[in-house]
């Protein structure tokens, strides 16, 4: 081959270098903002972070700067998000298996279902909150852990379904055929082969949805309510960390605002711990995945 003229080669090299700089710059910007956000929250929360924040419920005058903690919101958020994630999972998995095993991936049903899930994904959480509120009123329920769970489950459902679906679509048809050719029914193929093969995607989907659910304020504002006590049952109102942050940040007292940052730090920590734990657990579940 004839060597390229130098001028053109140089231009191509320059473009290449310029793009590299651009890519590095955006990577740095993303990392830096993450560090700044986490740093700022931790820095602001340091004066308020204490063991009693984690272990005590708000006592009288907590929102005026007197003592107590946010145990109510920590427990409420965990119970609510775990419950909601469980419900969303029970809805998502059968739907996704149906789309990928029973329906061809390009069937009309599958295409339209995916479209509607994408639309639902984009619906703002306050709309889910408002919808949950209407349903509650219609059923004569009051704000409760259960109502919050169901609303957040609705919010998580499209996120989880689409995340799992994207991974399950990548399972080669030949793998399903291999299972079928051994005499497996579609159900057996779905449960024994597809679920295992997509285990990493299922895990990611669940963690993603959990993260969205535990951190959402608008959907629980009207449906779960808020209380200073740890919820005693499904029909009791439940406090949540995002709302705790919201209320504490809205006061004129600096020491209470510090508590808002402490709550934010705790919420971030919870998401971090659950993600890491999920990944560690998932390592065992994913060792059989066929590359």
């Amino acid at each position: 081959m004839k060597p390229l003229p130098d001028a053109r080669l140089n231009r191509r090299k320059r473009t290449d270098r310029a793009f590299r700089v651009l890519a590095l710059a955006s990577a740095a910007a993303v990392l830096l903002s993450l560090v700044i956000i986490l740093g700022a929250i931790l820095w602001k929360s340091l004066p308020a972070l204490s063991l009693s924040m984690l272990t005590r419920t708000p006592k009288g005058g907590f929102y005026l700067g007197k003592e107590g903690g946010i145990l109510n919101a920590i427990v409420g958020s965990l119970e609510l998000a775990i419950g909601a994630t469980a419900i969303a999972f029970l809805l998502s998995l059968p739907l996704v298996l149906y789309l990928n095993v029973y329906k061809g991936r390009a069937s009309k049903t599958a295409v339209w279902t995916r479209f509607f899930l994408d639309v639902l994904w984009g619906v703002p959480s306050i709309v889910y909150g408002a919808f949950g509120f209407i349903v509650m009123l219609a059923l004569g329920l009051r704000a409760s852990l259960l109502a919050g769970m169901l609303t957040v489950a609705l919010l998580e459902f499209p996120i989880m379904s689409r995340a799992i679906d994207e991974v399950m679509r990548l399972v080669p048809r030949e793998l399903k055929e291999a299972s079928a050719s051994l005499g497996a029914t579609r159900f057996e193929t779905a449960v024994k082969v597809l679920v295992r093969q997509s285990a990493p995607g299922i895990l990611t989907g669940v963690l993603l949805a959990f993260g969205r659910g535990v951190g959402d304020a608008a959907s629980v504002l009207f449906t779960a309510g808020f209380t200073d006590r740890v919820p005693g049952g499904l029909l009791d109102p439940a406090a949540t960390l995002p709302l705790a942050i919201f209320f504490q940040l809205g006061t004129p007292f600096p020491e209470v605002r510090e508590r808002a940052y402490a709550s934010a730090a705790i919420l971030t920590l919870i998401i971090l711990v659950i993600s890491l734990a999920g990944r560690a657990l998932g390592r065992k579940a994913t060792r059989h995945v066929v590359k």
């Binding site: 030949e174 291999a178 299972s179 079928a180 050719s181 051994l182 005499g183 059989h288 066929v290």
Partner: peptide
């Protein structure tokens, strides 16, 4: 299908 075993072009081991 139980009466037949299939070998595909690319081996497809189960996960």
């Amino acid at each position: 299908r139980k009466k037949m075993g299939l070998l595909s072009q690319k081996p497809q081991v189960l996960p």
